[in-house]
Design a protein around this nucleic acid. Structure first.
Length: 246
DNA sequence: AATTATGTCAACCGCAGTTAT
DNA sequence: CATAACTGCGGTTGACATAAT
């Protein structure tokens, strides 16, 4: 049976959320915490399906969600992680504090993807980058992992098996990332752990994002690229980014 | 000023994976 | 082990805003 058929009664509300609905949802999460989404509509007194409630919370109401334009280093990171991971938006968003997977996906689709089919790209100038994207994406990744799974990884096994067999991919990604999709690392320590784990275990990733800058808690390439955020009407620095990537 | 085209982004939908029974 | 229930993800849609004609 499809869960949607259970949670969605015929009269369930759709479309844009009202302030009142936001308030009810916020109160509910404050009281009961995140999770148990199937209970949220009832607890909150909302005539919404659980998916809608969850989405509204995750993409809009959750504290510390960042609004507004993406900074240069965020764009840089999105591009590199996308090159590495493909459309793994939740995973990418997990590296961008305050940004949601939906934000990242929307930004990619409306701003970045267009760059990939720019006239210059069509002339073949940047064909290598497209090839790399196709060949080195790590996928798919399990959302949760067995507690019995033991990390076992070395650079050689990673580079030899990436994108060859799904079973291998799962092991690889597990060993590299070691954290279920959907969980975000909110603390600096966790973020540092994530990056160092990545960079220690896979040369390809290090090539993509640079070595880890312990002082600034960032991959060094991101730290070095200290350009100001893009301004409307100015060059967006895309050429520099391409130069870095190729 | 009116109309049309394009861009943006919140929200929906279907599906796959995980957990519970 | 099989099935149902639940969760989370990524693709897509559509409403609204803005720009262009």
């Amino acid at each position: 049976m499809n869960s949607t058929t259970i949670t969605q009664s015929p009269g369930v509300r759709k479309g844009a959320w009202t302030e009142e609905e936001d308030l009810l949802l916020r109160k509910c999460i404050d009281k009961y915490g995140e999770g148990k989404w199937h209970q949220v509509p009832i607890r909150a007194g909302l005539n919404r399906c659980r998916k809608s409630c969850r989405l509204r919370w995750l993409n809009y109401l959750r504290p510390h969600i960042k609004r507004g334009d993406f900074a240069w280093d965020e764009i840089d990171l999105i591009f590199r992680l996308h090159k590495l991971l493909g459309n793994r938006w939740s995973l990418i968003a997990g590296r961008l504090p305050g940004r949601t997977a939906n934000d990242v996906k929307n930004y990619w689709n409306t701003h970045l993807q267009r760059k990939l089919i720019s006239p210059r790209r069509q002339e073949g100038k940047y064909n290598n980058a497209l090839k790399i994207t196709e060949n080195t994406i790590l996928r798919p990744r399990p959302r949760t992992f067995s507690s019995a799974t033991k990390p076992r990884c070395n650079n050689k096994s990673i580079t030899n098996t990436i994108d060859k067999e799904e079973r291998h991919n799962k092991e690889i990604v597990l060993n590299i990332c070691g954290k279920p999709t959907g969980e975000t690392t909110s603390s600096i320590d966790e973020g540092v752990q994530w990056w160092t784990s990545l960079l220690e275990n896979c040369n390809e990733i290090e090539e993509a994002v640079g070595s880890f800058d312990e002082e600034n808690k960032l991959p060094s390439l991101l730290h070095e690229k200290n350009s100001p955020p893009m301004q409307k009407g100015q060059s967006d620095g895309w050429d520099e980014l391409w130069n870095l990537l190729n």
